[in-house]
Design a protein around this nucleic acid. Structure first.
Length: 261
DNA sequence: CGGCCTGTTTCCAA
DNA sequence: CTTGGAAACAGGCC
């Protein structure tokens, strides 16, 4: 699930459910997903969550004190808010109980995600070398960050140090919408093509957020609408969308509508 | 049983 | 320093 749009929806969900109520207890069902000392997470008991921000695929939760809870969701994480009379969701790895009788679970099936406490968002971003968020980065910052890179454009888009938030399916969609084949070397793209890529990145990310990151509701001219199980035909030319591997990741593209430059 | 997966890190090679 | 490949993490689904 969690690329930028999904994490943004998690952030909205969190904001609507979990703010400004006392935390009674922090239950750690699986210590492996906690980065750093478990004790520091437990100390959130008695505190409250006061706000939530997002940078790329990471969510940052502000508290009444001077520490920030970060959550990264890996490939299979999400949040679940429910009443304590209801059974906790499967794969709930960390559970925050509130005075209200509700709970918030950090759910992670494959446990690739991590959560923990950091001093500030800037500290975390620096430690992880996060580039500017895909929605925050300006056109010229984006083209500057890509200029001269020798790696293929898909790998560059996935590089969180270039811009943070783009994941595998968004990268495929950006390149499909831009008419650029994923293996094109970044330095072989001219400025105008990089600007197109930037604009399509904004468009894809924003439209995914607008439909609450429910893939099936993406526009009909998107190729990533149906996930990756069924073979689909290109909305532009009706050829079958090909599946290849680029940078070790499954990649979908149209060999006719996307050019190698 | 084998292959695949919306992510990241680490190690190694060129 | 840059790039890319492979493995590892864990659990399911087809």
């Amino acid at each position: 699930m969690p690329e930028l749009p999904e994490v943004e929806i998690f952030r909205q969900y969190f904001t609507e459910t979990s703010l400004n109520q006392s935390i009674l207890e922090v239950e750690i069902n699986h210590p492996k997903v906690v980065r750093g000392h478990e004790e520091i997470l437990k100390k959130l008991a008695g505190d409250q969550f006061t706000g939530a921000k997002r940078w790329g695929k990471t969510m940052f939760i502000e508290t009444g004190h001077n520490h920030i809870l970060f959550m990264h969701f890996g490939m299979t994480g999400n949040l679940n808010y429910y009443h304590s009379t209801v059974e906790s969701p499967k794969y709930a790895r960390v559970i925050f109980s509130f005075e209200s009788g509700f709970k918030l679970a950090y759910v992670s099936k494959r446990m690739f995600g991590r959560l923990g406490v950091t001093k500030s968002i800037a500290d975390y971003a620096k430690e992880k070398s996060l580039g500017k968020d895909a929605l925050e980065i300006t056109e010229s910052e984006f083209t500057d960050a890509l200029a001269g890179k020798n790696k293929n454009i898909k790998a560059a888009l996935l590089d969180q140090q270039v811009t943070a938030g783009v994941g595998n399916w968004i990268a495929d969609e950006i390149l499909y919408q831009s008419g650029i084949y994923p293996t094109t070397r970044t330095r072989d793209l001219n400025r105008q093509q990089l600007i197109t890529t930037y604009k399509k990145m904004q468009e894809v990310v924003k439209s995914a957020i607008a439909i609450d990151a429910v893939r099936e509701e993406l526009p009909a001219h998107y190729i990533t609408r149906y996930g990756r199980k069924t073979s689909i035909s290109c909305p532009g030319c009706s050829n079958t969308i090909e599946r290849t591997e680029v940078g070790g990741r499954g990649t979908y593209a149209c060999g006719k509508c996307q050019q190698i430059y």
